[in-house]
Design a protein around this nucleic acid. Sequence first.
RNA 1: GCCGACGUGGUGGAAUUGGUAGACACACUAGCUUGAGGGGCUAGCGCCGCAAGGCGUGUCGGUUCGAAUCCGACCGUCGGCACCA
Length: 872
Amino acid sequence: MHESYDPAAVERAAQQYWDERRAFEVREDPARTKFYCLSMLPYPSGKLHMGHVRNYTIGDVLARFLRMQGHNVLQPMGWDAFGLPAENAATANGVAPAKWTRENIAHMRAQLKSLGFAIDWSREIASCDPAYYRWNQWLFLRMLEKGLAYRKTGVVNWDPADQTVLANEQVIEGRGWRTGALVEKREIPMYYLNITRYADELLEGLDALSGWPERVRVMQVNWIGRSEGCEIAFPYAADTAAVAGSAGVVKVFTTRADTLFGATFLAVAAEHPLALAAARSDARLAAFIEECRRGSIIEAEVATQAKKGMPAGLHVLHPFTGKPLPIWVANYVLMAYGEGAVMGVPAHDERDFEFALGHGLPVATVVRSPDGSYEQVQSPWIAAYGEYGVTVNSGEFSGLASKAAMETIATALELKGLGRKRVQYRLRDWGISRQRYWGCPIPVVHCAACGVVPVPDDQLPVLLPEDLVPDGSGNPLAKSPAFYECECPRCAGPARRETDTMDTFVDSSWYFLRYACPDAASMVDGRVEYWLPVDQYIGGIEHAILHLLYARFWIKVMRDLSLVSFGEPFSNLLTQGMVLNHVYSYQSDTGRKRYFNPAEVDTRRVADGREINEVVTQDLGTIQVTHEGLGKMSKMSNNGVDPEGLVARFGADTARLFIMFASPPEQTLEWSDEGVQGAWRFIRRLWTAVYEHVAAGTPPPLEPHSLTPSQRELRRLAHQTLAKATDDIGRRRNFNTAIAAVMELLNAVQRFPAATPQGCAVRQEALALAVLMLSPITPHVCHVLWLALGHTQPLIDERWPVPESEALVQETHAIVVQVNGKLRAHISVPASADEAAVRAAALAHDNVRKFVADRPVRRVVVVPGKLVNVVI
RNA sequence: GCCGACGUGGUGGAAUUGGUAGACACACUAGCUUGAGGGGCUAGCGCCGCAAGGCGUGUCGGUUCGAAUCCGACCGUCGGCACCA
């Protein structure tokens, strides 16, 4: 053993040992308990950032910990290799996405290996490999057969300058990010997966997922958004029937059928057929609809925009009173939710209220609060009353409690054929078509004679050509006859291959099954039944809804196709908090934004206290950039911190220890490398402690019964630390406090005078326990220190130790004494002392007597082993 | 706007079940060691105060013998909002 710690040499030795032994390659073994530890697969953006390091270190700590507890642990890794950034890079640099992606994978794989993760690399997969994505296509075809995949039109962002579809991310303040052109909406045919068919099961399944964080389950519940309510049909008035060409109804969905008599208008989406019909003879309305059409398709923007509307000049009839209600076209009504129309009840709905006030529409009260505090018309109107109560002014339905009114009105509507009770979901079907090149081709062919024809299974995979370079305008596949010209599988006539590719969420919806059987000749095989479901899934909280919901849906579909036996993919979920860093941007004249890495930004304060942020660029010289605040580390905002520098300077163990010590895993972490010194210093102190201990000679066997009090005390601390670390890692997943406890143990070891042979034996045990406890977190240095402590079996094959109950016995308890809740004294009592003795000892303390003085003691609260509170 | 979370010293954080607020670290200050390097060791370090003591966990209010923790309102930050992944 060297006197000084050399991380590079230590890490080389440990990694070489693991590699030679193929220590992390695992096989199915029915005799052993399996543990599938999975981290979300990375997008190969080019370099790792600290968010990745955090994610994979958490996974690695758990994988190594459970391995030490005797489990057969699978920890795989792969690449979410399709997606937009590769196309952007291609457009910018003229490199084909395939080459760019594969080079990034090679670099990032090397970075992951340098961090020493216990990954079974023999199972590595990349979603851009045909051997993987052919099964996306295969399952899509099965879904098509079952009617679970279907075709309908959908709305996309259209950049008229580049003649291309934009991702939401590429729309900045309503303009295309490259062209600055005003983005339009465009309706195109797309494929949808029928996730809403599984809405109820996805919702109910959440109750059983006790290993998931509550916050994620709540978010999914709200996303699915099941609401029980009523569909109500408003018959056309004569003017509407004339425009529509026949009699008919406008359907709305409401959860508040009890407020039906308070409806004073009907609002429809700009895309609603009646709005379009009315616009044919109303130029102003047509202009308004055109304005809405230019609006955003992004929900966050739709929800925050000013509520605008215009009367359609048409009417519907109230289903009970027959009174005509005006139809308004409103930008806050979404065509995608419900029926694309809502009844406007200003008195009892906040949004309707705001709209009515803005457009001078009448407000009619039809609910009063049970205690009468809200009654009749307010003057002037200040707010809607959205609570339940008792119906008023509702004809024959007046005087009913809200719930009863909903039932009664629904029944009456059903009798009239103008409504029925119905369940509505907020969840929409999953649109998977992307007008992009770098993705999995959708396996269908369009034939003039046969229509849409699925590609037969024996012609899979539909291979994605890898040599195309997108130029930012349109999909290169659609400009590549070699790809799209084909023969119809049905009639053998000339046909055109579908050029849309799949959403990359498809790739990440089942990759964890393929790790179990990466070489299977079918989509999955029996090995999946051994390894799945995933015992511990770890990934960013930003995936709480979309990815996790899509994966749950996909697995349920596979179960219903009898491909797997289970219906939930992830038994336990740890949602890692994001690693944030500052975001700096520069907006050029064309409106295009450029992001600068915080490492390049020079910040200084000017006289008036403002901060000036400057970047020296090659093309623009020195420019001032805008500090946009904090954001998650991402390629998009160019604020990632590459761990490479850290690893080169301090080694992988320091990087791992630092990120795990910085905060508990679920918490958002604002990036700063202050503190990395502490992790580095700690590992070196541990190294030195072991070195000096070993240099003092081999200690005799430990004799627990012949120890001095101070030796017993250190031994107790060592075992207490072990109990805490076991609980912190195994149950609480609070790695930072486990590390802090081991730091305290090391501090105690260093203060401990090990002058005698038994003193050395106690120290030997404490150091060995410290090395074992740290080994999941800093595996390289622990590998070397373990051997240095005289062990012949390598650490990787060691078991996680169990604290000895005898060593944990405590003879006295430290009790705090409060007077009126304020700390006044510390006392020490024998562990055997009863409540009366503790109380007496507390009251006898000088300082307690001083504060009590001659005031009467009203009450004494005794918390055994902890605290006494004297109330005066 | 809606849904979810978070807010504690100069900084990261600890306080696990309502029971000592600030563990463990970083930074900083002073001293020692000098091998003069991003080395090691010792001590100090929430705020006010000479002290006794008082105040203190985003803000305001409540429950309790006792609140960082529970409840209500508000403010701020972060994530998601269906084509970033």
